[in-house]
Simulated assay, not measured.
Amino acid sequence: MTKSVGIVLVSHSVDLAAGLKAMLAQIGSDTVPVVAAGGTSEGEVGTSYELVAKAIDQADHGNGVIVLPDLGSSVLTARTVLGDHPRADIAVIDAPFVEGAVAAVVTAASGGDLDAVIAAAQEARHVPKF
């Protein structure tokens, strides 16, 4: 079986990243490597370059990785990590954190390639709630 695209959840909050990861597991992401990189290395609110870099390595199973940050400095941290270690098969995605992650996991679990997973996460921005 082909390995799926990996997903890294970057949040200022350990709990938010872990909670979203748990939700994704409940909707069937057991075939998709989802790694949470929430908070600082000390477990405080913030972001950590080291945690993001480690999460990317853990999520990388050879089919690409998307990095989905929540806001502000998590975006800057993710972009800095990729700027320092550029790879064509890893992308920071501008998408809603929860909706984008769900769309990405569903697409990755169904065998979507990196481009399809990126598109699904980004398109989640335009799905109305009602």
Rank of each mutant, 00 (worst) to 15 (best):
A37K: 07
A95Q: 09
L20M: 09
A55P: 11
V52N: 10
D70P: 01
A59N: 08
V98F: 07
L51D: 11
S4H: 10
D84Y: 13
A22F: 00
P69C: 07
I7D: 01
D60E: 01
H85L: 14
A108H: 04
T40E: 08
V32C: 04
V75N: 08
D30H: 07
P96Q: 10
D30W: 01
R125Y: 10
V45L: 15
F130R: 12
H85M: 14
S29P: 03
T40R: 06
D84I: 12
V65H: 11
L68V: 10
A119W: 01
V75P: 07
K21S: 12
S41C: 09
A25F: 11
Y49K: 00
E50D: 15
S110F: 10
A37W: 03
L114I: 06
T77I: 06
A91R: 15
A22E: 09
E99R: 05
E44L: 14
V34Q: 01
G64W: 13
E123S: 14
D60Q: 06
H61D: 10
R79F: 05
L82R: 06
A37Y: 04
L71A: 11
L20S: 02
I56N: 05
V106W: 01
V117S: 04
V45I: 15
G6F: 00
K54A: 15
T77A: 14
L20R: 00
A101D: 12
A59S: 09
I66A: 09
A103W: 12
A101T: 10
V81N: 02
G62Y: 01
A25W: 11
V14M: 02
K129I: 14
H126S: 14
A37T: 05
G19S: 03
L71P: 07
P69T: 08
V127G: 01
V5E: 01
G64P: 13
T2L: 11
D89Y: 07
D57R: 12
V106T: 05
E50Q: 14
M23S: 08
V98H: 00
G83R: 03
G43H: 05
P86L: 09
E123R: 14
A78T: 04
G46K: 12
L16R: 14
N63A: 15
Q26S: 14
M23Q: 12
L82T: 07
V98K: 02
I90Q: 09
L114C: 07
E99Y: 02
L114M: 05
T77D: 00
V8Y: 02
Y49L: 11
S74V: 08
V35P: 02
L82S: 04
D30N: 11
K21F: 01
S41K: 12
D84K: 11
L76N: 05
G62V: 03
G83S: 07
G43L: 08
G64L: 13
E44F: 13
V75I: 15
G83T: 02
L76I: 14
D89L: 10
V35L: 02
R87E: 12
A109E: 12
R79W: 03
G46L: 08
D115V: 08
I56Y: 01
V45T: 10
A78M: 03
